[in-house]
Design a protein around this nucleic acid. Sequence first.
DNA 1: TCGAATATAGTTCGAGGCGAACTATACAGG
DNA 2: CCTGTATAGTTCGCCTCGAACTATATTCGA
Lengths: 188, 188
Amino acid sequence: MERKPIRLTTTSYAVMSLLELCDGATPYELKQMLEQSIQNFWPVPHTTFYEEPARLAAAGYLSADQEQTGRRRKRYSLTDAGRDALRAWANAPGSPPSQYRDEAMLKVFAGADPQAAFRGRIDWHRTKLAELEGYLAGLKEGWDGLRTDQWRGPEATVHGGIAYHRAMVETFERLLPGDQPETSSPSG
Amino acid sequence: MERKPIRLTTTSYAVMSLLELCDGATPYELKQMLEQSIQNFWPVPHTTFYEEPARLAAAGYLSADQEQTGRRRKRYSLTDAGRDALRAWANAPGSPPSQYRDEAMLKVFAGADPQAAFRGRIDWHRTKLAELEGYLAGLKEGWDGLRTDQWRGPEATVHGGIAYHRAMVETFERLLPGDQPETSSPSG
DNA sequence: TCGAATATAGTTCGAGGCGAACTATACAGG
DNA sequence: CCTGTATAGTTCGCCTCGAACTATATTCGA
């Protein structure tokens, strides 16, 4: 077991928390799990699932087991060090501020038409909402070998995701009608 | 004027849109402008304001003018190429999906106490809300040499920010009491 | 049963993002 | 004039990210 010291990032913990739920998963499986769960709170590009577990394994937080034929998949598991680090992080109080990133709003700042931007967002959040409600239904029947009772935390985050997208739809809808709620000085 | 080709990122446009409002600003001034405006939609670490304008200048999108004494500040201005690129981007329809990043939710996914996490978020969004409402008042009197009528776009984004933080406060408050809301779908 | 088309799975790479830590200038008060 | 603190600017290296790519699996028609 290697010991190359690395910095554990939030993405590291995202990977580890998925592995805790689904020990021995392949990168591809991790990617799919994420898409149906924490994607809404912590987006991770798919290449990360090939690079990050390798990094974590090199530092001793995961153990790897590679197939010798075919796709030569690697299956990863948490080591004790990994599990300890994960629990320590999860139990530590406080977290850095959340971030919202929206290029469309930036365009509005730069002078683009707010109506069009907001409408685009409304559509997108509606789509995500429908998607999540589908996942929620799926969750109850267990999912890819996971049992319902293992989903305590994950289920809470799906509910959170639904609440989030719903709130965003409502917010943008309220901003739509006239997006200068008062300040529009009748100077003209 | 150099011509080293670079990729224009969203952060590039953030810098350029601030410069369009406040021509000849120093990196430090840009940083302060951002904190009161697009920080809510596009977080940018302060070092970026020293590195990114240099990069943009090297590619011909900005012109630089460095003081020869004291702090040796650099003041940047949009070139025609920069202004054109900015307008082209702002007028292009569509934007990549927005992102929400919240390490606290990830901890909940990993098994942390949702109540504590949500309460922390409620406090934080309340603070931001108060901050933004202050900015909004300041906006009306112009701000650091900027006149009110130059703030069309920016003002819209401050309103957006207020709506956003308000919605997040409400959302987390609703999730608080019992964080398993029933799935209350009217589907019967 | 071959192989073309498509879907699935995995990898490489380099530019850009990011924050810790640091240096330097300005300014206020004793 | 010195010292402390606030303000302003910079360096550096690890991590992030996505485009582009390779490779394996599967499907389906001839």
